[in-house]
Amino acid sequence: MNDKLPIKIMVNQAIEMNFIDHQTTVKTVLNELKIDNGSMAVAVNNDIIPKQDWEQCVLNDGDNVNVFGAIAGG
């Protein structure tokens, strides 16, 4: 595909994000959303990505990203 076109990422089936940089990673998305990395979990296209891989995990156009935190209520 055309390198000049932004890539489109969908976050939690609700937020559409566009990135010019084709080396956008999971970490970039979290930073952009100002999400504290603390105890969050992230899945790309339904696969959970371990925290230590977030900086290396490059996203592709059309990827679905799920970001969620642990909840404790019972």
């Binding site: 603390g38 105890s39 935190g69 642990a70 909840i71 404790a72 209520g73 019972g74």
Partner: peptide, 20 residues
Amino acid sequence: CLFGGLSDQKANAQQSCSTM
């Protein structure tokens, strides 16, 4: 494995029914 480092996240210790 999933949520790693939860024990260090005292702020997150508040995610319960009584507070949220």
